[in-house]
């Protein structure tokens, strides 16, 4: 028997059009909720289009109508089977003070692994410089060439310099630091796709440089200068890099899926929002660190006393960890308690 295509299309077209209008409305205004009658109608239209698609596939070769219907059914399918909330409104404050620290705590194991990698790296860097001071050359990257000199000499130079090295270039320096550090952090997260190996290597390598520089200055008796120089920005920058590493390891964990009953896709789906939360948090921290490093860290005694710099840096570190470990705790409990009666 012949499916009378013209007749079929003429009969069904009003329904398709209605579905199309419905979909455009939904896709344009994400916050819109349909009432029961509208939802019923929408579901009816979807099923009708789906069955039309099934019929047209079985009875006649009609690439155009079929393509049109496939597009329509595909769009409606996405609306009906999606259970996650549409991201129609950003709540930056709630996100920063609740979601970000909560995510950090939920994924604390990945953070500890990143931290361990960096600590091991720093021991290695410190050991290398300790055993063989000439190793400095191979440990420090080219762009840190100013660290190749004797630390004592550098401190002397910095403390006695009369001119402001960064005069007229402070904003540029801050912008360069921010963008570079954010780029490196995104890279550290993305390298999670190498099952975490690339991320771990980056954490190790950062640790090696840090350990090497630290021991070099300590051996030269310049620990106060070192702390005053690194703490103000480092107390934010290093945790930020570690959180980027944490994000990379969360991605790696989702890829590997050790001991998880979920499918590959489900694991990635669950990890996705956490990854984005972590990396956006990292970006914000690095903006702050860039400003501090450019406008504050590069000034030494006698301009700014070391005690002040060290106190400032320690305070930052304390606040950061109080924030990451404590923020968003109470609210989360209250919310989950409130959600129960609704279900």
């Amino acid at each position: 028997m012949i499916l009378d295509v013209a007749h079929f299309v003429r009969e069904e077209q009003p329904f398709w059009q209605e579905l199309e209008e419905c979909l455009s409305r939904l896709e344009r205004r994400l916050e819109q909720r349909m009432d029961l009658a509208e939802t019923r109608r929408f579901y009816y239209l979807y099923r009708r289009a789906a069955s039309d698609l099934a019929r047209i596939r079985t009875f006649a070769v009609e690439p155009e109508i079929r393509g049109y219907l496939e597009g329509l059914v595909g769009r409606a399918y996405a609306e009906i089977h999606e259970i996650r909330d549409a991201p129609y409104r950003l709540k930056p404050l709630a996100w920063f003070f609740e979601t970000f620290p909560q995510t950090f705590r939920r994924r604390y194991r990945a953070f500890l692994i990143a931290l361990a990698a960096m600590v091991i790296g720093s021991f290695f860097g410190a050991g290398a410089v300790l055993l063989d001071p000439a190793a400095k050359e191979s440990v420090f990257p080219v762009q840190f060439s100013h660290l190749q000199d004797d630390p004592a000499k550098r401190v002397e130079r910095e403390e006695h310099s009369t001119e402001d090295r960064l005069e007229g270039a402070r904003s540029t320096f801050a912008a360069a630091l921010m963008t570079n550090n954010i780029r490196v952090s995104i890279f550290a997260m993305s390298l999670g796709i190498t099952w975490g190996l690339g991320t771990l290597i980056m954490m190790l390598y950062n640790g090696v440089i840090l350990g090497g520089v630290a021991i070099d200055y300590i051996l030269a008796g310049q620990s106060t200068f070192l702390a005053g120089w690194l703490l103000p920005h480092g107390s934010i920058e290093l945790p930020a890099v570690l959180i980027a590493g944490q994000a990379g390891l969360v991605l790696a964990g989702a890829l590997i899926g050790w001991g998880s009953a979920q499918s590959f896709r489900e694991r990635l789906r669950a990890a996705g929002p956490d990854l984005v939360t972590l990396i956006v948090g990292v970006m914000l921290l690095l903006v702050w660190a860039g400003i501090v490093e450019s406008f504050f860290s590069q000034y030494h005694e006698p301009v700014i006393p070391y005690a002040l710099k060290i106190a400032f840096g320690s305070l930052e570190l304390l606040l950061l960890f109080a924030f990451l470990l404590g923020s968003g705790r109470k609210r989360g409990r209250r919310l989950s308690g409130k959600a129960a009666p609704h279900d």
Binding site: G74, R183, P273, L275, V276
Partner: peptide, 18 residues
């Protein structure tokens, strides 16, 4: 075939670095 989430968009674009 589900709705595209904001986190998915951020993710796929940040991963461009790799």
């Amino acid at each position: 075939g589900l709705r595209l989430q904001f986190s998915q968009i951020v993710m796929r674009n940040l991963m461009r670095t790799v």
